[in-house]
Amino acid sequence: MMIGIEKLSIHDAEGLFQFESRNRAFFEKSVPSRGDAYYQYDHFSRGLQALLDEQAQGISFFGLIKNSQGDILGRINLVDIEKEEGVGHLGYRVGEDTAGKGVASQALNLFLAEHVPQLAVKIICAKTTTDNISSQKVLLKNGFEPYDMESETKDDFLHYRLNVVE
């Protein structure tokens, strides 16, 4: 499947809202819920604007994984970019209809090759719940190494790290 990663823009608001709403139950099987307010369009729009403001400041990059028809298949983000330390925190998710088809692995590989070099990071951190085997495989396939485990009240998280080659 041919995919690309596009930088998030305000023009994606409606499509992204539909993607998130359509996949809510699927996402909440493997990650903590974003809460009911997230799925109300006005609240979602304000949140989106806050993300775009962060992106404009250079402290985050928000990408959409799209197919050749321009449909949103998922998201891939690098947030909390600490420029002095050269560290950023990765997040990604693909929709239920594309899960298990290699889209997340392909998207992460593309993201690392095409977008990360412009983001001035040396280390990318990621975490996933211990039972999200698919996400763990995506990270390992793309060179991330596990380094820690964190227990929270509801979920246990595995932490991964990738040293970016310059």
Rank of each mutant, 00 (worst) to 15 (best):
F27W: 05
E28I: 07
P32R: 03
P32W: 00
P32L: 00
P32H: 01
P32G: 00
S33H: 01
S33Q: 02
S33R: 00
R34S: 05
R34Q: 03
R34C: 03
R34L: 14
G35M: 00
D36Q: 09
D36H: 01
D36F: 00
D36W: 00
D36G: 04
A37C: 04
A37Y: 01
A37R: 12
A37F: 03
A37W: 01
Y38S: 14
Y38T: 09
Y39K: 05
Q40V: 14
Q40M: 06
Y41I: 13
Y41V: 02
D42N: 14
D42K: 04
H43R: 12
H43M: 08
H43A: 09
H43N: 14
H43K: 09
H43T: 15
F44L: 10
F44G: 13
F44M: 11
F44H: 11
F44I: 15
S45H: 09
S45E: 07
R46W: 02
R46M: 10
G47E: 10
G47D: 14
G47Y: 03
G47Q: 13
L48G: 07
L48F: 08
L48K: 10
L48A: 08
Q49A: 11
Q49W: 09
Q49E: 15
A50P: 02
A50Q: 15
A50E: 15
L51S: 15
L51R: 15
L51G: 03
L52A: 11
L52I: 07
L52Y: 06
D53Q: 13
D53T: 07
D53E: 15
D53Y: 02
D53A: 13
E54S: 14
E54R: 15
E54W: 03
E54M: 13
Q55V: 01
Q55I: 02
Q55D: 09
A56V: 00
A56M: 04
A56N: 07
A56G: 12
Q57F: 05
Q57M: 06
G58D: 02
G58S: 02
G58T: 11
G58N: 05
I59T: 14
I59A: 03
I59P: 03
I59H: 13
F61R: 04
F61K: 04
F61Q: 10
F62S: 08
F62W: 12
F62D: 05
F62E: 07
F62C: 06
G63W: 01
G63T: 03
G63L: 06
L64T: 07
I65Q: 10
I65A: 06
K66A: 02
K66H: 04
N67T: 06
N67V: 10
N67C: 05
S68G: 01
S68H: 13
S68V: 04
S68T: 05
Q69L: 11
Q69V: 08
Q69I: 04
Q69Y: 08
Q69F: 05
G70K: 05
G70Q: 12
G70N: 08
G70V: 11
D71I: 06
D71H: 09
D71F: 07
I72V: 12
I72D: 03
I72L: 08
L73E: 08
G74A: 09
R75T: 15
R75E: 15
I76S: 13
I76F: 12
N77I: 01
N77R: 06
